[in-house]
């Protein structure tokens, strides 16, 4: 066998084997999740009690704040952005509701602002959600970020959730998004 032919054969085997392995993995994954369920929060039942932040087994909770842009009022005076009794309406840290600075906003046009959640910074405390839902359109809501969730057999947050908002949902509808309501 010539060296060129040897290399082509090896390359073909490696590529083919890789593709076959990948197909196998994906296939097994697909068959494994078919009919399975995942943990998720029902925003309609969530009371924003704060336990999602403290009870998750992850070091930083897998629960994150989601933002439905279609629902948002783009308010300047946003109850989810500014903390209670704020003195000044600006972006200084002492005025902000989010303890981790996960919410940023950008001026669109007077008097509208676009809000964005930095998922890496969000700790799932729900303070912004409470603020938005009690004096706003409720565009901020909590969801379990499935890529971060370990899918424990017994969710430690669900065990203490006072409203029973955390339930298992089909994989096909792993999120309860307000944009799609």
């Amino acid at each position: 066998m010539e060296r060129r032919e040897f290399l082509r054969t090896c390359g073909t085997l490696i590529t083919g084997g890789g593709l076959a392995s990948l197909g196998g993995v994906l296939g097994s994954k697909a068959s494994a999740v078919e009919g399975e369920t995942m943990w998720q929060i029902d925003p309609e039942r969530c009371l924003q009690c704060g336990r999602c932040e403290t009870e998750c087994v992850m070091r930083v909770s897998a629960v994150k704040c989601f933002h439905a842009n279609q629902v948002c009022g783009y308010c300047d005076l946003c109850g989810g952005y500014y903390r209670e009794g704020v003195k000044e309406l600006n972006t200084a840290a002492e005025n902000l509701m989010c303890p981790t600075g996960a919410i940023t906003r950008r001026f669109v046009e007077e008097p509208y602002f676009e809000y964005t959640i930095d998922e890496d910074l969000c700790n799932g405390c729900g303070k912004c959600v409470k603020g938005c839902s009690s004096f706003g359109n409720g565009s901020l809501f909590l969801q379990i970020q499935q890529e971060r969730c370990l899918q424990c057999n017994e969710c430690s947050i669900a065990k203490v959730c006072v409203s029973g908002a955390i339930q298992r949902v089909p994989v096909g509808t792993a999120y309860k998004l307000k944009d799609h309501a």
Partner: peptide, 9 residues
């Protein structure tokens, strides 16, 4: 986090 981060004119 300081005032002006939201690009308010």
């Amino acid at each position: 986090f300081e005032p002006g981060a939201d690009m308010r004119p």
